[in-house]
Amino acid sequence: MKVIVPVKRVIDYNVKVRVKADGTGVDLANVKMSMNPFDEIAVEEAIRLKEAGVVEEIVAVSIGVKQAQETLRTALAMGADRAILIVATDDVHQDLEPLAVAKLLKAVVDEEAPQMVICGKQAIDNDMNATGQMLSALLGWSQATFASEVKVEGDSAQVTREVDGGLQTISVKLPAVVSVDLRLNEPRYASLPNIMKAKKKPLEEKTPADYGVDVSPRLTVVSTAEPATRSAGVKVADVAELVAKLKDEAGVL
């Protein structure tokens, strides 16, 4: 079967995020960008399914600025077979909303007819945790979010999900959208030969207009602010002083 894996170019998870002084957003100019960590896990899972003989073809899709082709090359170097880039903006500070992304992905799915879409559960920039669920809804497909284990069995998949009380296992009919959580797998690093090979793999470039999708935002960003800071308190010398402070000063014991 064919699998589509959407990948997003986001600020590298090791970079300290700075809010712009004018409050319009977060400064992304000259900042290291990488593939969203949850999407790396999604790519890895698709590759493992291919290695297990369940999946024949993996198509990575990214939607955003032109530079997202670097993110797609990373997916190709890891093991995806080909890539589609939908250039939706030339402004690195413009974040396409999950609803618009889901509509574009639906258009890609309609053309490509995969049996599964495997995506990260959330992007570490807008933290919205929405695209997979929205895509599944628009397609009228089943959804299995926050996956920690995926087993494909004939025309269904058994997915174990990380939920608040522990783990829940469900069976979803294929085609399905699976969104992945942290503990599904540990993504591989691309080897140098594979990075070289990835440069020759097909990468098709499209625009939202090619799919007839309106990507105008539904939400207006009013402001972006630094969170309230919390200042350091005091160091206590020993356990006795700690207990005394918690009882007498903080009043929490």
């Binding site: 809010v19 977060v26 920039d125 933290d127 960003v221 972006t224 602010a225 969170p227």
Partner: peptide
């Protein structure tokens, strides 16, 4: 957003 490193309205 950004793991609580910014608050967006």
């Amino acid at each position: 957003i950004y793991a609580g490193n910014a608050i967006q309205t």
